[in-house]
Amino acid sequence: MATGLKLKELSKKEDLFTHGHRMCSGCGAPIVVKMILLATDYPVVASNATGCLEVSSCIAEYTAWKIPWIHTAFENAAATISGVETMYRSLKKRGKMDKDIKFISFGGDGGTYDIGLQSLSGAMERGHDMIYVCYDNGAYMNTGIQRSSATPLGADTTTCPAGIAIPGKIRPRKNLTKIMAAHNIPYVAQASPSNWMDLMKKVRKAHEITGPKFINILSPCNRGWRSKTNDAISLSKIGVNTCYWPLYEIENGVTKITFKPKEKKPVVDFLKPQGRFKHLFAPENEWLLTKMQEEVDTEWEKLLKEEQCV
């Protein structure tokens, strides 16, 4: 029986991702995982790519996962769960499995946009019945904040540090959500932990759809974003309200924006509280701020058009 999406009801559920994990204080990733598992009313098995979430949740004989969970390596969370899911189907076919199980794969942006893209693309194309969740914190955080193809324009990271000659990352982000949509899989979405109801609805919807699903979730990292430990939710909210991180879904090719901010805030509202963008506010880097705003605007306009196309 499905739990209603009300906090009072959800709070009665058992924590399937427990405390005692070792993510940094105020990290967004455990909030994302917790919301996904709370929204899941089925038995679920998960895989996890190497990265902050994985090393901090299953370490030195302690696991925070109360569900069956597997980590194998960095670039292959999708391939790994595709194997688990295939064995499940095989056992079902042979009458050795009578339960209905859902499969989720978790990967960071490095493990998803970059090194794991092939494995993810392959698993999606093969049509495994699974949800792939990317928790996007915009850099390789576990190894110490190196740039990934999800790192936003202008960000200061340890491999594209903001220097005198080069002002941080000079390339825009890759639009992975759209790349996944181009796989023509039945469901692709973008979500944010600030909008918990929207996030959980998407997870619920994804579980009810057979086949491969992909959800990209903004996951603040106060260490890498050089922000405060208490701002994971407020920052992700600003990310949504500036349309830097639009909340939308593409179901069977049909785009729907699931949240439109009443007033679209300027992207500087999102950048200002984050130390990784501090240098952008120096006069010589103003062009990057302008470029960033232009990019957000263009993407948002595109999305609005895509929605109207239907």
């Binding site: 405390h19 005692g20 302690y62 925070a64 069956p68």
Partner: peptide, 10 residues
Amino acid sequence: EGGNAVNFKT
């Protein structure tokens, strides 16, 4: 033992 991290206090 799934969820045994509850024994690791933070």
